[in-house]
């Protein structure tokens, strides 16, 4: 029994680290721009396919393609903001939300048009898992978890040490005061999209490495990603990391008692419970 639990917990950490990368970006975008970015899952998908482009086109290993895909997706996210969202920022947030939904559909259609709708993988062949006593761990999983951890540390250093990172936190804290202080909102917004896009790409690539690539891969992850941001307290990057890990573990561990098909429902249930009982997020303080 506990072997199974430990195994699921490890799987949960893996899924959780992927969710955390998506959730940190989504929560930062919410903090700075005050809307739930529905195309975030499809940014993940785009990132995964950008990496595939590099892997197939230049015959490079996926971990080398990762930073390239992150840059491409960051540029895409900034571009989408400039073309679509920037023009409608001053209107009601619900309009932004709906147009992000449309953006999601467009991105998915683009992926289908370019890469088709069948499943694809970065590398064929089977990786031999490591055996730790009764537990099995794939080398890829360790790689994903470690890289995700490094990225999260990088985001932490950015937010806590750099002028732009602090300005970003300031803007999500108190938009009006940021304006009064002379913080250039447009530049902060661009950086928010760039970082959100890059992290989404990493999440997408990791998901593709762990499973496979298909055009709705990111969309299906959107619900757990949003759940993670809400559990962590929306607009709070550190909370989103915690939320991602919690939702990931809960989803995996739930398969002990209910069929695996209900995993997204578990994320949904946790999100609803959080909204009912602790809408400000389940951890204390204002990190």
């Amino acid at each position: 029994m506990w072997i199974e639990v430990t195994q699921l917990f490890l799987n949960g950490l893996l899924l959780g680290s992927i969710l955390a990368l998506g959730a940190v970006g989504a929560t930062m975008i919410f903090g700075v721009l005050r809307f739930a970015h529905f195309a975030h899952g499809d940014l993940m998908t785009m990132g995964a396919y950008f990496a595939l482009l590099v892997v197939v086109g230049l015959n490079l290993p996926v971990m080398v393609a990762l930073p390239i895909a992150m840059l491409m997706t960051a540029a895409l996210a900034v571009g989408i903001d400039q073309v679509v969202y920037r023009r409608i920022r001053r209107v009601q947030p619900v309009i932004l939300l709906i147009s992000s939904f449309a953006t999601a559909l467009i991105l998915r259609a683009v992926v289908q048009m370019i890469w088709g709708s069948s499943n694809q993988v970065y590398a064929t062949g089977i990786q031999l898992p490591w055996r730790l006593g009764p537990l099995t761990i794939k080398p890829d999983h360790v790689l994903i978890f470690c890289t995700a951890t490094l990225l999260v540390i990088a985001v932490h250093l950015f937010l806590s040490r750099t002028r732009m990172g602090k300005a970003m936190r300031a803007m999500s804290d108190n938009m009006n005061l940021a304006l009064i202080t002379g913080i250039p909102a447009d530049r902060v917004i661009m950086w928010t999209w760039a970082i959100g896009g890059a992290l989404a790409a990493a999440a997408g690539v990791f998901l593709g490495m762990d499973t496979r690539l298909h055009p709705v891969m990111g969309w299906t992850l959107l619900l757990p990603v949003f759940a993670a941001t809400i559990v962590g307290g929306i607009g709070r990057p550190y909370g989103a990391i915690f939320g991602g890990l919690l939702i990931g573990c809960a989803m995996e561990l739930s398969t002990l008692i209910i069929p695996g098909a209900y995993k997204p429902a578990v994320a949904f249930a946790i999100m609803i419970l959080t909204l009912i009982f602790r809408p400000q997020g389940i951890i204390k303080g204002a990190l």
Partner: peptide, 30 residues
């Protein structure tokens, strides 16, 4: 407001005049 700040005018509003989740030092740095 950005231009006001650049010209040397600083304004402290009546309410919500700090960044609550940031440290004192970070508030000053910003």
């Amino acid at each position: 407001p950005e231009r006001m700040v650049a010209r040397g005018i600083a304004y402290v509003p009546q309410e919500a005049n700090v960044f609550p989740s940031l440290s004192v030092l970070e508030n000053l740095e910003l």
